[in-house]
Amino acid sequence: MYYVLYLANLCRRRHWSEPSYEVYKHSTGYTCVVRVNNREYKSDKVYKTEIMARENAAMSAYLICRNFSVNDGMYPAGVDHGGVLQGIPVAIGTGRRVASSSGASQHHA
Rank of each mutant, 00 (worst) to 15 (best):
Q86A: 10
S17I: 09
S27C: 08
A8R: 12
D80Y: 05
S102G: 04
K25N: 08
H81D: 02
G95T: 15
K42N: 12
V46P: 04
V46A: 04
A91F: 06
V23Q: 00
S43L: 10
A61G: 03
V79L: 10
N9K: 14
M74W: 06
D72C: 07
H26Q: 09
V33F: 03
M1Y: 08
I88W: 05
N38H: 15
P89Q: 04
F68S: 06
T28A: 13
T28P: 00
E55C: 05
G95P: 01
C32M: 03
V90C: 02
R96N: 10
N56P: 06
Q86L: 14
V84P: 00
E50F: 11
V79M: 09
S69I: 03
Y6H: 14
A8L: 13
R66C: 06
L10A: 01
D80P: 00
N71R: 03
E50W: 10
H15M: 13
R13T: 11
C11W: 01
N71E: 04
G87F: 03
I64M: 12
P89G: 07
F68I: 09
C11F: 01
M1A: 15
V84C: 11
G93F: 01
E22H: 15
A8W: 03
H107M: 11
G78Y: 06
H108S: 14
H108Y: 12
G78T: 10
V34N: 00
I51E: 15
V33N: 07
Y3M: 08
Y24V: 08
A53H: 02
T31Q: 06
E40G: 03
Y24I: 08
Y24Q: 11
V90P: 01
R35T: 15
S17L: 11
V36I: 05
Y2D: 15
H108Q: 14
C11T: 02
Y3S: 05
P19D: 09
L85M: 13
N67W: 07
A58W: 03
R66L: 01
G78L: 09
Y21W: 05
S43G: 10
T49H: 10
Q86W: 06
P76I: 00
D80W: 03
W16L: 00
V98C: 10
A109N: 13
A91G: 06
E18Q: 15
A104I: 03
